[in-house]
Simulated assay, not measured.
Amino acid sequence: MEQRQARVVIPDHLSFTDLRLKRPETGKIEFEWDVVKQICESSEGLPIEHLENGLEDNVVGLILGWYLVIRENGGEADPVPEELLAEVMENEAESASRDDESGLT
């Protein structure tokens, strides 16, 4: 599988809250695609098709990456991405545990 390097640029006029990120009772993640499109247009090597038509993990990765940068720079916590991060960490821990049990490295 081919991996691509992208240089993600968040336009100065955008803020994380512009995503209007939410997660209703269905568990599905909802956000403003227009914000993601603007990020793709400002970035190098980040085609919108990769996010729109690819795995949900692709766009979630972009959103959580942006959020982590904000948090690292002293930004306020947001419950939706915090919940998503906790789930990602839990899934990674479970995957690592399964790999350890199977003897895979």
Score class of each variant (00 low, 15 high):
Ala96Val: 04
His50Arg: 12
Glu52Pro: 03
Ser102Ala: 15
Asp99Lys: 12
Phe31Gln: 04
Gly54Thr: 07
Asp18Phe: 02
Glu30Asn: 13
Met89Arg: 11
Ala86Cys: 11
Arg23Trp: 05
Arg23Pro: 03
Ala77Met: 14
Leu85Tyr: 01
Gly75Lys: 02
Glu92Asn: 15
Leu55Asn: 12
Leu21Phe: 02
Gly54Ile: 03
Thr17Met: 06
Leu64Val: 13
Lys22Thr: 15
Leu51Asp: 00
Phe31Ser: 04
Leu19Ile: 05
Gly61Thr: 08
Ser43Ala: 11
Thr26Gly: 10
Ile39Asp: 00
Asn91Gly: 07
Pro11Gln: 04
Glu72Lys: 07
Glu92Gly: 10
Asp78Cys: 08
Gly103Lys: 04
Leu46Thr: 00
Cys40Thr: 04
Gly65Trp: 05
Glu72Cys: 08
Lys28Val: 14
Asp99Phe: 14
Gly45Asp: 06
Thr105Ala: 13
Glu94Ala: 13
Glu92Lys: 12
Arg98Met: 10
Glu2Trp: 11
Leu62Asn: 00
Ile29Cys: 08
Asp57Trp: 04
Val80Cys: 05
Gly65Thr: 09
Glu44Met: 09
Ala86Trp: 02
Asp57Glu: 14
Leu68Met: 15
Ser102Asp: 14
Pro79Lys: 11
Ser42Arg: 06
Glu41Trp: 07
Asn73Val: 06
Arg7Asn: 12
Glu49His: 06
Tyr67Cys: 03
Arg4Trp: 15
Asp34His: 10
Val8Asn: 00
Ser95Arg: 12
Asp12Asn: 06
Ser42Lys: 05
Arg98Glu: 15
Asp99Thr: 04
Val35Gln: 00
Glu94Phe: 05
Met89Phe: 09
Glu90Cys: 05
Glu25Met: 08
Ala77Pro: 11
Val69Leu: 08
Pro11Thr: 06
Asn91Trp: 03
Trp66Gln: 02
Pro47Lys: 06
Leu84Val: 10
Gly65Leu: 11
Lys37His: 12
Arg20Met: 09
Lys37Met: 06
Leu85Trp: 01
Thr26Asp: 14
Glu92Ile: 04
Leu46Gly: 01
Val9Lys: 00
Arg7Tyr: 10
Gly65Ile: 08
Arg4His: 15
Pro79Val: 11
Ser43Cys: 07
Thr105Leu: 13
Val36Ser: 02
Ser97Tyr: 12
Glu49Arg: 14
Glu83His: 09
Val8Gln: 02
Lys28Phe: 14
Arg23Val: 09
Gly103Tyr: 06
Ile29Asn: 00
Asn58Ala: 14
Leu104Val: 13
Glu72Leu: 08
Glu76Arg: 10
Asn58Glu: 09
Leu68His: 09
Thr17Asn: 13
Ala6Lys: 09
Ser15Val: 12
Gly65Ala: 08
Ser42Trp: 01
Glu25Phe: 05
Glu76Ile: 06
Asp18Ser: 04
Glu2Ala: 12
Val8Tyr: 01
Ser97His: 14
Arg20Ser: 14
Gln3Gly: 07
Ile29Gly: 02
Val35Asp: 02
Arg71Leu: 13
Val9Cys: 04
Trp33Lys: 09
Arg98Thr: 07
Asp99Cys: 08
Asn53Lys: 15
Gln38Tyr: 03
Gly75Tyr: 01
Asp78Pro: 03
Glu83Ile: 06
Val59Glu: 01
Ala93Gly: 06
Gly54Trp: 03
Met1Gly: 15
